[in-house]
Write a protein that binds this DNA or RNA. Structure first.
Lengths: 348, 348
DNA sequence: CTGAAAGCGCTTACAG
DNA sequence: CTGAAAGCGCTTACAG
C-alpha cells in the first residue's frame, strides 16, 4: 500500500470499487492480461503476473461477480434448499450442523450459499422459477420424505443437485450423501443383544423417510443374524418427535410387558420413551436398556444419558459440497454412504 | 403458451433462457419498453404494458440478475451474518427461528439471503472483503457479544446493516431490533413476588451480552419497586448453558439455603437449575419457584414445565428485514424494541 | 409514451 | 505471451 485508501462513502457520493481497468492501468498491462491472471495465470509471463498481483493488492481489487456471471453464464453461488416443514427443521439440531458445514465447505471455494425454503406449493413454484432462471449453479437439497416434488422440478430444469439422505420414491437416479443408517442400527441392536438382552423391541421412524426404513431394516437383519424371530408386537412406529416416542413406548409396554430393551430410531423419540418407561416404573438400564440414534445434544441431558449412534454430519456436509461441485463441473457424481459410530453411555 | 417449451438441456447444449430481447420481439416493442415494464410500468402505455406482460408469460421470461446488478450496482441480495461461535448457535433454537423468519420475509421481496459466518479473524477478513466488494446490499447481523469487530468493519465499508439485539460496546449508533428483555424480566420477577415468594434469587446471563445485562437490571428494578433490598448473595451468573445454570444454582443454594424462588435468564440454564434443585432435595414449585426466559422448546419438556418469557422471534425477523430494506433505500432506520409475553406453567 | 444508444465490468476467442 | 474488440443482458438518460 502506497497510501491509505479512503474508507467508506463519507464524502456523500458512493465510491466505486476499483475495476479490472484500474488494475490494468497500475500494472501497465491490458485488461485481458489482468483477466488471465484472475483465471489462474495461464499464458501470462511471470513479469506480468507479478505486476498484476501487486496492482491487485495495492488497489484492494475484488472481482465484480455480476460482471463475471454475465459473461460466464455461471452465478458462482449455490442454494441450500430446505423442503421440510418448519417444525421438523426447528426440532432437529442436525440440520443446523449441516447448514453450517455446507456454508463452511463452500466458503473454502469462495462460493456463497443461498438459503431457500420450499414448504408449500406457492414457495415451490417461486423457488423453481428462481432456480430455473440460472440464479444458482447447483442445489444442496435437504429432504427426507418420499416423493419430494422439488427433485423432479430441479431435474426438469436440469440443475445440478445433491441430496442429503437417500431420496425415496424418485424415478431416476439422484446423487446423494447419507449416513449408513442400516449399519448404524445393526451396531446398536447387536450391542443390546451382546449385553445379554433377549426381548429387544424397536420404535421405528416414519416409513416415508430413508432413516425410518433403513433403521428398521437393520433391526430386522440383526435379529435374523442371531436366529431370533421377528415379533411384530415388538415393532412400534413414531414420527421422530418426543411425544411420538413416548406414545410408541407405552404401546410397546402394553403389548409386551416382558421386553428388556428397545432400539429407538431417534434420540428425541428415545427421550420420550424414557418418560414412558419412568411412568411405567421401569428402571433404565436395569429393567429396560434403551438405545437411540443421532447422538444429538439431547442424548447427553436425558437421565440416564443415551447410548446412541453418531451420524457424521461434518463429513456429510463436506461430501455434499464436493459432489455438487463435481456435478457442476460436469462430472458424474457417485452416491456416498458414510459410516456411523456407536456411542455407549448409561442407558443401554 | 402456444407450444410446450422444451424442458431441460437434454439435447446436449445448454438452452439459454429468454432475454429481454426475445420479450421485446414477441411484444413488438423496444427493449427499453420491456425494461420499463419490469421497473413498474411508469411511462408505458396500457397497450405496451399488456403486450409485454403477455410476452413475458408466454416465454417464461425471468430477469437475469447478473445483468441487472451490473448496471444498477445493486446485488439484489442480503447477507445473514453469524458471528457467534459454533456451539452457541448450535444450542440456541432461537437462531434457527430467526434465520427462517428472515428468509421468509426477504422472499416476499424476492431477495435471496446469503448465509455467512465469521467466527474467527480469518473468516472476518474474508467476509469483510466479500461484503465490501458490494456483493450484497445489506447485512442482517446476529451478534450478542460486546465489542463485535464486524460491526465496525461493516460501518467502515459503509454497508447498511441491522443487528439482532442491542450491540454492546459500539461507538456509534447501530440500528437494531430486540425483544424487551428488561420488561420481560420485570414481568417474571413480579409474577414470582405476586405469588407470595419473598426470597427471590436470580441466575443472570453473561454480562457482555445485552440479555445478560438487561434481564439482571430488570430483576433489580422490580426488587426496588417492591422496596426490597438487593442482596448480592442472591445473584449468580451463568453462561447460558445448562451446566452453567446447574453450577450457579448450586452456588445460590450454598450461599442462601432459604431462597424460595429463582429467576433464570434462559430456559436452558433453568433446566440446569432444576437438576441442581432436585439433587438438593428441593421440590419445584413447592419449595422453590423457578422462572426461565425464552420459551424455547426445552421449556415444555422440563419437569415441571417452565414458567418463562416468550420472545417474539417471528416479529423480530420481520422487523429486521423491514428496517434493513429501509436502510438500503437510504432512509434512517429506528431502533425497535418488541414486547415479550409471560407464559405461566407449573414451575413457578 | 417510445426507441436508439451508451455503458455497467468482466471473459474469451482472435490475430499477432 | 499479449492487446484490441466483441459481447454477456440489462437500465437509463436523451431526444423526439
Amino acid at each position: 500500500m502506497t497510501e491509505p485508501a479512503p474508507r467508506g462513502r463519507a464524502a456523500g457520493r458512493p465510491k466505486r470499487p476499483p475495476t479490472i481497468h484500474d488494475v490494468a492501468a497500475v500494472a501497465g498491462v491490458s485488461r485481458g492480461t489482468v483477466s488471465r491472471v484472475l483465471q489462474g495465470g495461464h499464458n501470462v509471463s511471470p513479469a506480468s503476473q507479478q505486476a498484476v498481483e501487486a496492482a491487485i493488492a495495492q488497489l484492494g481489487y475484488v472481482v465484480n461477480r455480476a460482471a463475471r456471471s454475465l459473461v460466464t453464464q455461471r452465478s458462482g453461488s449455490v442454494a441450500f434448499l430446505l423442503t421440510e416443514p418448519q417444525e421438523r427443521f426447528f426440532e432437529d439440531p442436525n440440520f443446523t450442523t449441516l447448514l453450517r458445514g455446507c456454508t463452511a465447505a463452500l466458503a473454502e471455494h469462495d462460493i456463497p450459499l443461498l438459503l431457500m425454503t420450499a414448504g408449500d406449493d406457492a414457495e415451490r413454484r417461486r423457488v423453481t422459477r428462481y432456480l430455473a432462471a440460472g440464479h444458482v449453479d447447483g442445489v444442496l437439497l435437504v429432504s427426507s420424505h418420499r416423493g419430494n416434488p422439488m427433485i423432479e422440478h430441479l431435474r426438469e430444469a436440469d440443475i445440478p443437485m445433491v441430496c442429503c439422505g437417500r431420496p425415496l420414491g424418485q424415478r431416476g437416479r439422484v446423487p446423494y450423501v447419507a449416513a449408513d443408517d442400516r449399519e448404524g442400527a445393526k451396531d446398536l441392536v447387536r450391542h443390546l443383544l451382546e449385553s445379554g438382552r433377549t426381548r429387544v423391541a424397536t420404535i421405528a421412524g416414519p416409513q416415508d423417510t430413508p432413516g425410518g426404513v433403513e433403521r428398521l431394516s437393520g433391526y430386522r437383519e440383526v435379529l435374523a443374524e442371531y436366529g431370533l424371530p421377528v415379533d411384530e408386537r415388538l415393532v412400534a412406529r413414531g414420527d421422530y418427535s418426543r411425544s411420538g416416542g413416548e406414545a410408541a413406548m407405552r404401546e410397546l409396554l402394553d403389548r409386551e410387558p416382558g421386553l428388556d430393551a428397545v432400539f429407538v430410531a431417534s434420540d428425541l423419540m428415545a427421550d420420550g420413551a424414557l418418560s414412558a418407561l419412568e411412568h411405567a416404573g421401569r428402571r433404565v438400564p436395569e429393567d429396560v436398556a434403551v438405545g437411540g440414534f443421532d447422538d444429538s445434544p439431547v442424548a447427553l441431558t436425558t437421565r440416564p444419558p443415551l447410548t446412541t449412534i453418531r451420524q457424521p454430519w461434518d463429513r456429510i456436509s463436506a461430501e455434499m459440497v464436493r459432489l455438487l461441485l463435481d456435478r457442476i463441473a460436469g462430472e458424474e457424481a457417485p452416491t456416498v454412504i458414510l459410516p456411523t459410530e456407536l456411542v455407549v453411555r448409561r442407558s443401554g
